[in-house]
Nucleic acid binder design. Structure first.
Ligand SMILES: [Mn+2]
Ligand SMILES: [Mn+2]
Ligand SMILES: [Zn+2]
Ligand SMILES: [Zn+2]
Lengths: 143, 143
DNA sequence: TGCATGTTTGGAATGATTACAAACAACAGC
DNA sequence: GCTGTTGTTTGTAATCATTCCAAACATGCA
């Protein structure tokens, strides 16, 4: 498990944000969990061990800054809380109605790269499915 | 403007729900606004004129029942509140970041009808874009 | 050293939604 | 017509994610 913090500071600065200690550790945590889709609360909770003084408000501030700067994507799939991930490459997701996880879906989509539709300007493309993941289907089956 | 309430009572009953007065007027309102995507608050506000005693809680209860019964679709696009529409035919949307409207997008999508993906069971397909609608682009242009 | 600017912090406020318990309505059996 | 049962409606209180706010901090620069 190699700590690859190098570059995070530069990544943050490159978007015109000050690379503060808080922003670095939050982006580091997101970078170490690239395939997960974390809530602000989860990020704050994971941080409490190493940095107990980090406030939840700062986590929210930081995530909002990252999203505005185009570093992080915010997903509003569940309707109850925002999930964040360290990428801005558009891709699809599946929300499992059993375990609540959000899972990346590798799928071709002819609309994923569109910049306009019917004369509307398109800035973001979001595609997701709601259903049941494989793990949960197996659990159901074996019970 | 013809009042076409006929059938709503039957539609509600056909899903195993009692066709109460409240449920009928709420579904009627949704049916009259087929292309809009309303919040519970908007529905409640529109109702206040004719039915001032209808409670916001009942609007929520009713909408949740309709969604569970497969009569109504809930959209969690903005992240701040749920939008409801009287259809369950899967289609795409555009959220205008200027005026906040959600607009139906007629577009072909090869994934819109999928029932499974990578071994996952798929129950719902959601696709939407964030951008700027034509009205708002014109306003920007003319200012 | 002192100032200006941007960031962090905790606590209070906000706002959408749900929980809850009491009042109601519809209906079947007596 | 009463009575019990069941599901619905209602108002109020509670919940929970997120934002607001003002004070404390940090950083870099005159
Ligand atoms: Mn993802
Ligand atoms: Mn629609
Ligand atoms: Zn699952
Ligand atoms: Zn618009």
């Amino acid at each position: 498990m190699i700590t690859n913090n190098s570059g995070l500071k530069e990544v943050i600065a490159s978007r015109g944000l000050k690379p503060t200690a808080q922003r670095i550790i939050i982006l580091d945590h997101l970078a170490r969990n690239m395939k997960k889709h974390l809530t602000a609360e989860q990020i704050h909770g994971a941080m409490r061990k190493k940095t107990p003084m980090l406030s939840l408000t700062t986590v929210y501030n930081t995530l909002n800054s990252f999203v505005d700067a185009g570093l992080v994507t915010a997903l509003t799939i569940t309707g109850t809380e925002v999930r964040y991930e360290y990428t801005t490459v558009s891709h699809h997701h599946l929300l499992c109605k059993h375990c609540g996880r959000i899972i990346d879906i590798e799928i071709q989509c002819p609309n994923a790269e569109r910049k306009s539709i019917n004369g509307y300007r398109v800035d973001e493309v979001h595609g997701y499915f709601k259903g049941v993941c494989r793990d949960c289907m197996n659990k159901e089956h074996n019970q």
